[in-house]
Amino acid sequence: MKPTTRGTLAAVMTGVAAAVGAAATPAVAAATVPIPVPLNGVEQSLGLKAPEVAGELPLPLPGRPEGPRYAEGRMTPAGAVPQVPLSGGLPGADVRTPLPHVLDGGFEHLGLSAPAAGLRTLTPGADLDSPLGAPDPARLGLPGLKEPQAAVLAPLVRTTPTANLEMGSGA
């Protein structure tokens, strides 16, 4: 293979790898969507230093529900209406506001930072069992009767939110 052919092939492969990498990066990195709150107009119209406000909104991602589980002695599988897992997060906020310093002309600030927290949930589900039992050899293979059973599977929420409140000197 000629060196010019090899160089052209290497350049094409590099371009393809860069295009594929650039296309895959936003999907992987987009766990939260930033939400800026523009307050520049308030600062210019009132002549005061305005607070800086920003937020984060996490994107919910559905998971794979657990399939039915067959149990011995039951006509219907356990988990007739499966629980669907969802993962995402609680929204985050970052607020920083200046406070006028009484003794001199400088400013102090008050800040609150509450990053987006991970959130794992399971939707409610149902578990049902029919009023027919297992086939009974003493009754020529006919199933026996039993009380029907129904249960609601409770939803589940797991998260650990955090926040940081600070006060200090500087703008």
Rank of each mutant, 00 (worst) to 15 (best):
V37I: 14
V37P: 00
P38T: 00
P38I: 00
P38R: 01
P38K: 01
N40M: 09
V42A: 14
Q44S: 08
Q44Y: 07
S45V: 10
S45M: 08
S45R: 12
L46A: 12
L48H: 08
P51D: 04
E52M: 12
V53P: 03
G55S: 07
G55Y: 02
L57S: 00
P58F: 05
L59Y: 02
L59G: 07
L59M: 12
L61Q: 15
R64N: 13
R64G: 09
P65W: 08
E66L: 11
P68C: 08
P68H: 06
P68W: 04
Y70S: 12
Y70H: 13
Y70E: 12
E72S: 14
E72D: 13
G73T: 03
M75V: 13
T76L: 15
P77H: 11
P77S: 14
A78S: 14
G79C: 02
G79Q: 04
G79E: 02
A80P: 05
Q83C: 03
S87L: 09
G88F: 00
G88T: 00
G89L: 05
L90P: 10
L90E: 03
P91M: 05
A93R: 03
V95Y: 00
R96T: 13
P100M: 01
P100R: 06
H101M: 07
H101A: 04
V102Y: 07
V102C: 02
D104E: 10
G105F: 07
G106P: 09
F107L: 15
L110V: 14
L110T: 09
G111Y: 00
S113C: 07
